[in-house]
């Protein structure tokens, strides 16, 4: 958003300091990521003895990547996770935005009771076994839907979306109503476009949650052709993990590398989503445009 500001001396000084400060903060956040990247191609012994300071790869090698990428399953994992994240994300966002729109109507009878009951689920849940039995009763076990449906709506995401909707100018809706728009038109034609920033945020939240989720898969999926990327990667990790009998193997030494490599392999695709969604964060100007 173009911000109109005074160009006083103080303002310029502030800008300079701000840039310097944020650069520092950025480097601080960059370091662990850089470290992971460097460590994934380094000799793990030297990494561990570096005291946490790793500027260049030490004892360069790509064994860990070869180990991770040789698995046939990993590509299946990628395909499945992509599917779960995209389909699940879209479905979740859709249902969440609809619910948030409804629950942000100030005059809706029963709104407070519904909100209260929804909050209750944040704190009290049936636990693993009863939830499993319900999911099983719906026939979702060993289907792609097991990765999507049981976590369809996140209450946290729902709440922040409601909060966002509440902050939108009510007059727009009034005006639309006077023009004869019904609730569906208001939701899909007026509110949704105004809500692009929050929709991008919860899309990101949902997709990242599905992307990183591996417990759901462990519980509901047995068929290996449905495994998500994280499930495949954990299998590779566990294989490289401590095993008293296998302790004699050279492989052991690369267990650390593999850990770093799996993070790089699993993270890069999802990292690319954010810059793409970011541009919707600056669409706030729309409000002014619609008002006219």
């Amino acid at each position: 958003m173009e911000q109109i500001t005074n160009n006083g001396k103080g303002s310029r000084l502030f800008n300079a300091l701000n840039i310097a400060f944020l650069t520092g903060v950025m480097l601080l956040a960059l370091y662990p990521c850089y470290y992971v990247l460097m460590a994934s191609v380094s000799d793990p012994v030297q990494v561990s003895n570096s005291g946490g300071w790793l500027w260049f790869p030490k004892g360069f090698g790509m064994y860990s990547y070869m180990d991770v990428l040789k698995s046939r399953l990993i590509w299946i994992g990628y395909r499945n996770t992509l599917f779960y994240a995209v389909c699940g994300g879209v479905l979740s966002v859709f249902v969440t935005v609809m619910a948030a729109f409804g629950l942000s109507r100030k005059t809706l009878p029963g709104k407070n009771i519904l909100l209260f009951l929804i909050m209750v689920t944040m704190y009290f849940s049936g636990g693993l076994i009863p939830t499993y039995l319900v999911v099983k009763a719906f026939g979702l076990i060993d289907t792609p839907f097991a990765m999507i449906i049981p976590g369809l709506v996140s209450t946290y995401n729902l709440i922040i979306t409601i909060t966002y909707f509440r902050g939108l100018p009510y007059e727009l809706e009034e005006a639309a109503k006077i023009d004869g728009a019904n609730d569906y038109t208001i939701l899909f034609r007026i509110m949704m476009p105004l809500a692009t920033p929050i929709i991008s945020v919860i899309s990101l939240y949902y997709m990242v949650a599905i992307w990183n989720n591996y417990f759901t898969g462990l519980i509901y999926l047995n068929n290996r052709s449905l495994y998500s990327l994280q499930m495949v990667l954990r299998e590779i990790l566990i294989q490289n993990d401590t095993n008293a009998i296998a302790a004699n193997s050279d492989m052991q030494v690369y267990a650390e590398n593999v850990k770093y490599a799996t993070i790089v392999v699993s993270t890069i695709p999802i990292l690319c989503v954010y810059p793409f969604l970011q541009k919707y964060f600056t669409k706030g100007v729309m409000i002014g445009a619609i008002k006219q």
Partner: peptide, 10 residues
């Protein structure tokens, strides 16, 4: 279905 139905587990 997915939050209240399994809640008997509590």
């Amino acid at each position: 279905l997915f939050c209240y139905l399994p809640m008997f587990g509590t």
